[in-house]
Design a protein around this nucleic acid. Sequence first.
DNA 1: GGACGACTATACGAATACGTTATAATGGAC
DNA 2: GTCCATTATAACGTATTCGTATAGTCGTCC
Lengths: 291, 291
Amino acid sequence: MRLRQLECFRALMLHGTMTRAAELLGMSQPGISTMIAGLEHETGLNLFVRRGGRLQPTPEAKLFYVEAARALEAAENASRVAAEIRSGRRGHLAIAAYPSISINLLPRLLSQFAENKPELQIKIITRNSATVRELISTQQFDLAVAELPLDYPTSHMEVFSYDCMCMLPRAHPLAKLKQITPDDLDSVPFVTLFRGDPIYQQLASAFSEYGARWNVVAETEFFSTACQLVTEGRGVGIVDPVVSKPFTEGLVVRPFKPRIQYQIAILSPTHEAPSQVAQDFAGLLRRALRA
Amino acid sequence: MRLRQLECFRALMLHGTMTRAAELLGMSQPGISTMIAGLEHETGLNLFVRRGGRLQPTPEAKLFYVEAARALEAAENASRVAAEIRSGRRGHLAIAAYPSISINLLPRLLSQFAENKPELQIKIITRNSATVRELISTQQFDLAVAELPLDYPTSHMEVFSYDCMCMLPRAHPLAKLKQITPDDLDSVPFVTLFRGDPIYQQLASAFSEYGARWNVVAETEFFSTACQLVTEGRGVGIVDPVVSKPFTEGLVVRPFKPRIQYQIAILSPTHEAPSQVAQDFAGLLRRALRA
DNA sequence: GGACGACTATACGAATACGTTATAATGGAC
DNA sequence: GTCCATTATAACGTATTCGTATAGTCGTCC
């Protein structure tokens, strides 16, 4: 039993004559005729009686039609779903990400990505980078974004490196400089990430190397919190130039020397092949993180 | 999108390798390979990634599988239903019949007919023969059985003629005769059908022709009622030899002379083609009515 | 009753699909 | 490296599909 036969059968049942059914299906009348003959032969049912040169559906045809139409609709539905999956309109996109990127960049990109994909189910789980690293191993996520370094590196890792910038309140005296060094920040109130963070360690080394006094007035977990403190005038700070960009709206941002490196990575599941949707979104995310 | 492709896809999803799927479907491995390649091409989905010489279903394949399996099942169901219809296990059989045949013969034949047809829906409507004649015209019945003559004869009518028999209580003195005539029944208490019935008129003519006195002690609507009265010893009567046979169990039945003719007919719908089930049952009924 | 119109069935050929065998290519295991 | 299991590709015969051409059937309109 072939789908094409059912299609012809349905058209014939709905439109009465082979000639009209053929028109509707964009094929010739003899095509319909042989197709119906084949269906009758294969099912062993007499679907039509030839009466007065016309076709009249038998009671068997009416009974069979119900099931035939159902099967056709299921097949057409499968076909439609395939198109939806292909275009990314259907599917799911589960992403695990560390907090700073979860706050602004990720939801912004996701809502842009899902614009024309009504059936796409999105899930964002926010955890610290170590947990994100573990989550991607469970194969339950399509994509993850974590800060480096990781205790247990994973394959399928795409790294993005940034040189951190110095951020200052707009009215800060140092805002007129093109570039900031630890010397410029000697004893200046400073907002930084926590002691355990690589950023903290790099900053400590930089100030010590320059022989400047690092006046830490606040430690935060996230760049976004630090940004807010700087905005409030508590001091100056350091920030990555891309992910945290939305948080530095009212601030002045200047290159910092020496280089304070900040690295994040897009992680993909290892055992599982990534879904097309995940790959597409990874592309969008990659462009955003490179910018 | 062809059903065969979905079939291969399902087998592959369920059994992991093309080699095994091919075995299960009774075809060669390259056959599966090309079939899957065709499906991937037509749907535009990457259903499998080739990793380490093995196939691994992509997330898209898992999503699509749900719909594909559903479509396949619907098609297989349609196929199964076709087989059920063909063998008469599925369908409906609506029969309109006059009372006497509805009481015993028809339900007996129908239950025999439906023995191995679990899904067959049976409907029996009992009306007098004139109404049965009208009902078959409404095309809502697959078959009808009515007594003749009918005011408005219909085409598709298969007539069965019977010579009525005389029935007597087992202990009746006339039971020793091989054949009964009106002369034998002169003044004998007689149970007959109603005045309007053709049987009544034929009997009246017969007694008058033989110059015998017809001693009617009871008039009934149905043969079955008459039979019961005879069984109770109220008199002798006349009965058709086939339809009413079940009612004359404890009675003696003898040929009657002159011939009292009783005719019934199987009626088929005119506009509608009869269903295969109806035709099959008509065959069974025909054999029973001819016996 | 004959011509016409609408419809279905059959014949035949070309393109496509299907499924086979043979064989290459790949990767893991020992 | 060799063996084993797997998938992919090529070549080829057969079946299916669908078109065109044409014949047959029935009802209708003069």
